[in-house]
Amino acid sequence: MSEHPEKWEAQVRKGCLELAILAALWKGRLYGLEILRLLEDGSNLIVAEGTVYPLLSRLKAEGLIESEWVESEGGHPRKYYWLTKAGRQRGAAMAGFWAGFAASLGTLIQPLLGGKRAL
């Protein structure tokens, strides 16, 4: 196992991607590209865009999301996703864990940030 800092950052991003997708779908159904655009806005969560689609497929296999093909006005079909009941529960649980985790780690790393204050 190589311990390059870039690798660590990639792992953090990857680990958060599942929660980010569940969060993106919280308000309603979206297709893959819409989810990607939501994740892109303001965050650099995505390394390779292609990773989102296999992850959606896994979340569906785990029963956290459902999907359906819908024809668009443009003529090409889009695959829409939405949260199942299990997905909402999982998302809420992950968000709760994340909030506590980020808060305690934020306190811990404060000295490392020097003059800057951790959020």
Partner: peptide, 20 residues
């Protein structure tokens, strides 16, 4: 380019399927 190599995407789908 942004999608990444198709083999990489395929490998993730295959890993999912096999583990399931």
């Amino acid at each position: 380019e942004a999608l990444g190599r198709p083999e990489e995407i395929a490998s993730q789908y295959q890993t999912n399927a096999l583990l399931t």
